[in-house]
Design a protein around this nucleic acid. Sequence first.
RNA 1: GGCGCGGUAGCCAAGUGGUAAGGCCGGGCUCUGCAAAAGCCCCAUGCGUCGGUUCAAUUCCGACCCGCGCCUCCA
Length: 476
Amino acid sequence: MPVILHDTLSREKRPLLLKPGREVFGMYCCGPTVYGPAHIGNFRTFTLQDVLRRTLEVAGLKVKHVRNITDVDDKTIRGAQAAGQTLGAFTQGWTDKFHADCRALGLLVPHVEPSAIEHIPQQVAMIQALVDRGHAYVAKDGSVYFKVCSCADYGKLTHLDRSKLETQAKNSAGEANDADEYERESASDFALWKSRKPEDGANFWPSPWGEGRPGWHIECSAMSLAHLGATFDLHGGGIDLCFPHHENEIAQSECATGVKGYAAHWFHNAHLMVDGEKMSKSEGNLYTLLQLEAKGFTANELRYVLIGGHYRGPLNFTLAGMEAARPAIAKLERWADRLLALAGFSRADFAAPSSHEVQTTWGRFAPAWDILQEDLNTPGCLGQIFTVVGENGEVSPHQAREDVCGLAKILHALGIVLFVPKPELGVPAAIADLGARRWAAKQAKDFAAADRLRQELTAAGWTMLDRKDGFDLRPL
RNA sequence: GGCGCGGUAGCCAAGUGGUAAGGCCGGGCUCUGCAAAAGCCCCAUGCGUCGGUUCAAUUCCGACCCGCGCCUCCA
């Protein structure tokens, strides 16, 4: 059974299959603009793309995952200037921070992570092709614009009414949509190349039309062409990129190469909300991974939360939701430990299930896998996992081995990690001493003393958890 | 106005033409000197509102009410 996914362009659920004659599934994802810290909304998108890639790989497809870094645009240039840094130094700093977050979240490293600046020749070449083919024109100031009316099926992704394109000279706020692009022939035309302006500082490159810098949309067209070819299998991004970014990408790419069918499948995910509100800096409800970690949450827990809603619907992020992740993951760990013991496996075996003869089986997690493959239903998949976890009854060693293998694979597809080592908490000597004395009192059945010592521990902000053969001390 | 998405228990969130997965919280029980942990059990006659189709609708259709997104550089 292939992975089925909703496609924005056809508005249908369609199977993700290798094209005849091809061996690799090409997947292009719009990456971050590196001008500041990525927030958890950005990571909802990247995490879902990661789950899609993992799911395809578990399903047996060989995937080539390309995710770009946008390191030249208005925001990066402004940010670099405000920071008194070169554009390169500025974007490298934010790129490094982005990568650190990606690692923490367990995002698989893309096979190619192209940067826009490193692909300026390819962008210039594509713009030249568009000019040559009559799909773009050079304005008086040396900027180059894409001629939307030259593209017969412009708007097919978002199902625009072409007759109304011209009326979009104003945006929803009633403001003119012309920005600095006053040389355009039509309000719906968009910039491919922006002529050099004083505020760009040192950030300009030569071109047949004079010095300047690329427009926003062209980078993804050029980089996808360079690394995946004129047509490829899937293109992903946040729902907001649908228009104009992806619409323009299709127009540019198909007009420049003359080949239709730019991306066979469009994968868009809805946005993350925070406490039912749109997440935004002005609302003050914008979270980063670093901020959540400062509150004591882990990246693995954030990942659990981010896949807790279906990708096509908005997900309401709450701190309460973050708090629910830890006990839920702990429940999975306890269950996995029990099954591991029944199966005669260790936790190390769980991390590398492919080494077992049962690697092709899913055990009782076959339904969870089926649900995941059906339009990447991550919350449904999690629900099914817990349904199995909640089942009672005898489990044979053979069944346990199959279950363990199935669970390991499904969690690998989701990217949820069990048994993350927790940093050892340093227990102050005085607290450790109190604990030892209480344990001794308890062993001596001096319960009055034991209770008194427990109270002292509580007063000091610690709690003591008794086991059969010892005790743990934890801060309250 | 155009193109979309959503409204399901205290919170989060799946799903289905035949009367609602799961997680968290909460409650009960078992087990423990105490406490906790753990295990077990319970927790929506109802799925925004009003109509319609149907033997049967939360699920299909229509209208309406809310919330959200995009409509030229926001994942």
